[in-house]
Structures are given as C-alpha cells and as structure tokens.
Design a protein around this nucleic acid. Structure first.
Length: 586
RNA sequence: GCGCCCGUAGCUCAGUUGGAUAGAGCGUUGGCCUCCGGAGCCAAAGGUCAGAGGUUCGAAUCCUCUCGGGCGCGCCA
C-alpha cells in the first residue's frame, strides 16, 4: 500500500514537472508514513513540506497542486491537505480487505520477508561464565537475544546463535578449587572456605556428585592443602593472593590430570545446568563455542602474531600492549601479561577474529551494559586486524531489578544473594518472563514487577494478549457447538461486509504487522513487537465487545470469522517470535 | 576526575533518520454482562517531555551548558 501511494505521488510530481510547474531537477525521496491520528487518514505524505523551499512555494499551496495532479485510484477514498501541508490519504474500506486474505493464505509465513537475502548473521548472547547458575540478569539477555534472533530469521537472515563458553581463565580455576574444597569437606577434612571462593549451595551439590563418583581418591589431608598459604582476607590477608596460592596448591597436590578432572567435572555440571535452564526457557543455540578451544587451536597465538606483524603491539614493563588508542580507545591494553599468559582480552580478540573468518556478514554481540567500556577496544582490535568494525554490533542490555510487594529485591553476586533465572521462571512462568524481559527497550533499566507478571488479570499484558488468542479459539468452539462451520471461501468472498469502524481498525492494525516485524528486526528492538501485540489484542477485544461474530447472516458471519481468524494467526505469529505460547484456553 | 547510558502523567514505560492537538498500561473516578469466556469493554481526570540557551517553517527528538540517577574506567573475566 505504501509503495502504491509512493508511486501515485511520484506520478503527480512528474506531471507537475512536465507542465513546468515544478523544476525538473527536484530530487527528493518520497516518504509515505502511517498517520498517528486516525483523523489524519490512513497514510500521510510530507513531500510538500520537504519540497516547499526548493520549489519556492508555500507548503500548503504545493500540497494542493500535488493533490490535484494525483491520478485516481480505487483504493483511495479521498485525499486532503491538512496541517502545515501534509497530504493525507483516506483509504477505501475495500483497500484493507485484502489483508485478511493475505494472512489466511500465508498462515505462519505472514509477516516474514526476504529482506535479509539469506545473509549470515551471528548472534552471540548470554555467554555467562560457567561458574554458577544463571541469574535474572542473564535471563534478560537470553530473552532479548532469542527474540532478536527470531526477528532476524523472520526477515530472511540466516542466523547462527552462539554461546561463548568461558571455560578458561582464573574464574574457572577458582570454581575448580571451590569444588575441590567442598569435596574435601565432604570427605571429612576440616578446612576453611576462602573468602573469594564460590559460596553457593550448588558447589556443595556438585562436590557430592564428585564424591559419589570418585570416592576418596581425590582426598588430600587438610594440613597439606592449607599449610604455608598467604592468609585470607578474614585473617587480615589479601583474598586475591590467597586464592591464587590455593589454586597453585591444588594443582600441585592433585597433579595436572586430576586437577583437569575436577575442573571439567565442575564445568560440565554447571554447563549442563545452564543448557537445561535455557532450553526450558525456549532459548536454544546452534553452537556452544569453547574459549579453551581458541587457545588449543592456536587462534590466540595467531591473532597476537597478526597484531605484532601489523606493528600494533609493543613491550613495556615485561608485558605486551595493544596500541588500541590508535583506534580511539582511551588507553592501550595488555594482551600478554608479564607472566607470559594471554589476557581475557587477547582471547576475545582471537574469538572475534574467528567470527570474522567464519564469514558472518554481520556479528551481533549482546552484552550486559556493565561491559560498555569494553566495546571500543574490541572494535579497535578488529580494525587493527584489518576487519571492518562496522560489521560488529554490540547491543548492551541493562540489568533488571525485581520488585515484589512494592519492594525492590536486593541482589548481589558477591554475597551469593541473587535470584536465579530458574527461580524466576518457576515463580512467574516462562511466558510472562519472556514477555516482560522484552517489553522494554534493552538499554533501558527495567523494573520487573513479579506480582504483575504473576497476576492473571488484564493488568498483565501477557495474559491480555494470550487471552485474545484463547478467546478466538473459544469462539470457534462455540461455533462448532452450535453445529455451524466456517466457510473460508465464503468468508473471503464477502469481506466487503466488513464495514464497521471496529473492523476497519482491526484490519488496519493487522496490515501493520509486516512493517512492525521489519522495523523491530532491523532496529534489534523486540519491544516494538511486544507493544504492537498489545495494540492488536486491544483492537480485537474492543471489536469482540462491540459486535457478535456468530450471527445468523451466513455471509457476514463467515467474513467476520475470517477477520477474527486472521487476527488469531497474527497473534500466534508474533507471540512465537517472542518465545511466548499462544494457548487455546487460558 | 574522565567516558558511556538514562531523565516523558502519581507509578511502569512507548514515542528520537526533526512533523500535525506528546501516547499506552497500571492506579484513581464513573459507567457496561437475560448475548460468542467480564482474564473483557467504554468514559473522565492526570504533562513546564529534568532545567536553560541554540539550530528552523516546525524540537520530547539535533547541538551546547547545568542539575539529577545508573554503569564503566585492572597485567580480573
């Protein structure tokens, strides 16, 4: 429709140029937009405002001239000039009837497009350290990333969802040590637990499983573990030095093979838990990408070598630095520590180098907003490697705070006091969690109201939308109970029966769906879809209250049911993209 | 101190490639079920778009400054 109107305006402009009323060299993109206010018609064009200066005419006068030159079209009921010089198009009721037909014929495919031309896009999201269960902050990244990926699929991209597993590095060593200490305690050894260790109950549970599998084979006497270590924080020492020494001691006492065994046992247990958690949440990946494999395959070494070859590295204080300031970063960054170990950043450079080499045309990283300072250095690294940093989009997701009974729930990872994603899902359900997480713009701080998410009333937008879907299913059940059936062919043949304002409104809303999908996908903003679905549900509920569908008059009945079933289809399509179910009964 | 994000109705938030009288939900107030699910609908009240300048036909939207909030500034990951 937009395209058709654009053509009409183009024809009108050409006509005015031919007759000499307008200069032939005017070159402006014609924009047709949905009106915000129903009284301004269905579509509006601001061309007269844009061209007024160039044309040397007043906007309203120019708009009148363009309007007069517009060719007639059956889809347009009337055209008028309004406000400062907008050209408003009021469509004929028939113009929208086609929408219902399109939807019923396309079914699940309605709203999809080929905009992406099958181009390959990678979306990396969540990627939480496998040192503990996912918490509610990760949940938002999961729901958001999954929705963005689904949207990109809907507009024709080939999407590769990936989870970067941080299975190397000090945090994992700390987990391994925490696990072993809990195991030793399980064996009956009396040992203090380090301040910097992972305190959670889940570590104790994994330690029990380790004990059940290996018995006391990995047991070492407490005095051998603890003797001669620098003191821990509660004893006036430095907790970082203490835990580092403890890691070394663990390695020595267990030997490399058994250390690796404990390490991997913890890693696998937590990774399995995360994977299961996400699957239950409806979030699945094409690939789980191991950080350790980057090192083992020599990618880190190669990335460093490339930077060195390019002259982007220099040595200072025994460490190797990347000249990221050359690409706009605030300061240069260490890639090889003075102890010879590569930094996390070096691994990440290799990872992003690999993403580019795998041939993704666009790479999307979804990070917690607290990592925003990290963006310039990663882009700098890509530039130094000779890749185009523009191919990488980093989307930052703000944290969500939970509210219950009007009170903010305090959370701190440090104190081991955080609500897990699993707890949240159990409390409010997957559907409410998925929807609430994507209801807000991702860079917006979000207050997640648990009471609202749980409430089964119209206050709750998830139920409101799902209810619209269930209600339509219920209508169809009623129809069957009355011994009637819906005749699709008859319904589509009699769409012109749909003349009520409520029907026009609903059809108009339905026709916007493909535009919403496209816009939400390109902007990476699933909240646009969430808001749209609420509007659509509202248009339906209003219609439902105003007019009965199961009427005597068969042609009208079939037409109304066609409209209602088209609505159900769009509700289902949209909810699916957001990862929310479309139930037949509530 | 420097950098990034944010500030819109009592509350939670939409609206920013510059468009018409700034919207929605909740909450508040008042209406609507012999009728397809009232888990719904209709209506009213509610605004200095944090503040001050600037850019122009036009600014919540772009620029500058100020105020207020969040986050980041490791040879951690």
């Amino acid at each position: 429709m937009k395209q058709a109107l654009e053509n009409l305006v183009a024809q009108a402009l050409a006509k005015l140029q031919d007759s000499g009323e307008l200069r032939p060299d005017l070159a402006v993109e014609i924009q047709i937009e949905r009106t915000r206010d129903r009284r301004h018609g269905d579509f509006a064009c601001n061309i007269a405002l844009v061209l007024a200066r160039q044309a040397g005419k007043k906007p309203r006068e120019l708009a009148e001239r363009i309007t007069a030159a517009l060719p007639a079209a059956p889809a347009i009921a009337r055209v008028e000039v309004a406000g400062p010089g907008f050209i408003n198009f009021h469509l004929a009721p028939e113009a929208y009837h086609q929408v219902a037909r399109d939807i019923l014929e396309a079914g699940e495919a309605y709203g999809r497009s080929t905009l992406g031309h099958g181009r390959r896009v990678q979306v990396e999201f969540v990627s939480a350290n496998p040192t503990g269960p996912l918490h509610v902050g990760h949940g938002r990244g999961a729901a958001y990333g999954a929705a963005v990926a689904n949207l990109l699929v809907a507009v024709g991209y080939q999407v590769h969802r990936e989870y970067y597993v941080n299975d190397a590095g000090r945090q994992m060593d700390i987990l391994a040590v925490s696990l072993w200490l809990r195991y030793l305690q399980r064996c009956g050894e009396q040992l203090p637990f380090p301040a910097n260790g992972y305190q959670g109950q889940y570590v104790i549970d994994i330690a029990t499983a380790l004990y059940e599998l290996h018995g006391e084979r990995l047991r070492r006497p407490a005095h051998e573990v603890a003797s001669g270590l620098p003191s821990d924080e509660p004893d006036g020492g430095d907790k970082e030095r203490h835990i580092d020494a403890l890691i070394e001691r663990t390695r020595t006492l267990l030997g490399e093979a058994d250390y690796r065994l404990v390490f991997d046992f913890g890693l696998q247990a937590i990774l399995d838990d995360i994977r299961e958690d996400l699957e239950e949440f409806g979030v699945v990946y094409e690939e789980w990408y191991s950080e350790r494999s980057l090192v083992e395959r020599g990618l880190v070494r190669r990335a460093i070598e490339r930077l060195k070859q390019g002259g982007y590295l220099y040595e200072r204080d025994g460490a190797w630095w990347f000249r990221s300031t050359q690409f706009g970063d605030e300061k240069d960054r260490v890639v090889i520590r003075d102890n010879g170990q590569a930094t996390y950043f070096a691994h990440d450079i290799a990872y992003h180098m690999d993403k580019m080499e795998r041939g993704f045309e666009r790479v999307i990283d979804i990070w917690g907003a607290d990592h925003h300072g990290y963006v310039p250095r990663i882009k700098a690294a890509l530039a130094a490697l000779g890749d185009d940093p523009q191919r990488l989009d980093v989307l930052l997701v703000q944290f969500a705070s939970l509210w219950r009974g009007g009170q903010k729930i305090p959370m701190s990872t440090r104190a081991g006091q955080f609500v897990t994603l699993r707890e949240l899902r159990r409390e409010v359900g997957n559907d409410a969690a998925r929807f609430f997480y994507v209801m807000r713009k991702c860079e917006q701080h979000m207050d997640f109201d648990l009471d609202l998410a749980k409430s089964q009333t119209s206050d709750n937008p998830v139920y409101y939308i799902q209810y619209a879907h269930a209600r339509i299913c219920s209508v169809m059940r009623q129809l069957a109970e009355k011994g009637l059936t819906w005749n699709q062919e008859q319904g589509l043949a009699h769409l012109r029966q749909l003349v009520e304002p409520h029907e026009q409104e609903l059809l108009m809303t339905l026709s916007r769906y493909p535009e919403v999908i496209e816009s939400a996908a390109l902007a990476h903003e699933p909240h646009q879809l969430a808001h749209y679905l609420r509007e659509l549900a509202h248009a339906f509920h209003t219609y439902y209250n105003a007019h009965p569908f199961i009427v005597e008059h068969a042609a009208l009945r079939d037409a109304r049911l066609a409209l209602v079933l088209a609505t159900r289809q769009v509700l289902a399509n949209g909810l699916r993209i957001l990862g929310v179910s479309a139930p037949e009964t509530m």
